[in-house]
Design a protein around this nucleic acid. Sequence first.
RNA 1: GGUGGCAUGGCCAAGUGGUAAGGCAAAGGAUUGCAAAUCCUUGAUCCCCGGUUCGAAUCCGGGUGCCACCUCCA
Length: 472
Amino acid sequence: MRIHNTLTGHVEEFKPQREGQVAMYNCGPTVYKRQHIGNYRAFLMADLLRRALTYLGYEVTQIMNITDVGHLTEDDVADAQGEDKLQKEAARRNVDPWEIAREQERYFMEDLAVLRVPPAHGYPRATDHVAEMIEMIGQLIEKGHAYEVDGNVYFSIDSFPAYGRLSGNTMDKLNAGAGGRVEERTDKKSPHDFALWKRDEKHLMQWDSPWGKGYPGWHIECSAMAKKYLGETLDIHTGGPDNKFPHHECEIAQTESITGRPFVRYWVHCGWLEIGGGKMSKSKGELYTIPELTEMGYEGADIRLFLLRSHYRAPLPFDLELLDEAKTVRARLDNFVYHEMTERPDGTANPDLPKLLADTRRRFKEALEDDLNTSAALAALFELMHAVNKAQPGREDAERVVALVREFDEVFDVLSPPPQQDLDAEIQSLIEERDTARAERNFARADEIRDELAARGIELIDTDGGTRWKKS
RNA sequence: GGUGGCAUGGCCAAGUGGUAAGGCAAAGGAUUGCAAAUCCUUGAUCCCCGGUUCGAAUCCGGGUGCCACCUCCA
């Protein structure tokens, strides 16, 4: 397995700390608003990574955090001026922030289910780990990496020279490029210092701490929970492109200042999902949530395939036509498995088939091993389908082919469930009537019945072996 | 101003030194009572200029265009 590591900027050979075992942490959602499809690109990448690693024989432990406090609207300012996003939404809707957090967390899980994302091994909430955060903050102060000013605790950037290694925004660069954008004056020693603990009497979520009542800053939660559930050094840490800076820089600074060991071996970030030539984000208008898309008739699997068809790191344009295309492709896959390869006649085994299957599996695997090259993996699958359709296999060969397609689908998970085979008696008799009409060459009546069933969502397919149908 | 990234046929998209995967769309053909599906056929010298090389979409230099981060954001 080779994977692109943001830390080095290169695709590297992946070697977990423990042979065959992977400790993976995914930056999860901030539960103050419904996540949109752009957010889900990052979560589906995490899912892909987990599935691919599992397919390749690794045992993966996956932890994804739920941010339910402390994510500020002004992380850079990172003093008491910044607003907690959850708090802001709570004030807007005039409801308890806890209520919003739990509601949005529930929606998130619902969306993941629609997207066929199997649950991670844990979804720790920030608010359940304030004690761990306080402990880490205390350690940072002890070691001289953090300082308290009037109930606020800041991480001192100057105490961590490696700051900026991940994003390229090193301190000298940040200072050089300040260009008037860092203008605020605060109680911080350096404008780039970020908050670990914040005092704010008006905040609705308050915890006791050695520095008085307050609540934790955003970045510290990931350091605390990653350490608790996966240890001091993670094999993989994922996130969206926006997490690189400052969030992940801050995580590195906090954790490594305490442990003195590398925090993460491989940083993996996805590319932006773009809409209208720009990124899709909550602060702009046009974004789609999962329920909005399903109401429009798209299935989770359509969205999966749309996202998995291109490389996870490339910027990906989003529009409904591309989603339609994914739907078309998926229909072709379904058709192959449930129609072309089903009810095949008996036949002799094709001597070339074993090699075709082995080559296809090798190509598929090698593509995944090459920094999750899903485009190439899918190309292998399409070429297999083409070759098999051409060869018109007998039943046993067809079953072998389908088994391989299903094996690939453990990674992609885009096949529809098997079509229902039960039909009510009325429809059944209409189909029989049509068969009779066709036999009598009464095509007018036959087409009439076809149209009628189509209106009821039943699509008829005439084959040599008789009339088949499927729900359209 | 600083940082990171992108530029491949109508659209989407692989490919990082050896004569451009795959998908969607489109067109023609085979098959079909009509359909659907399937099969056959048809398309790009890879943003521009210069360089390195026997050979570059792929490396180097210089341009141009676009996106993002340095505010909230996956």
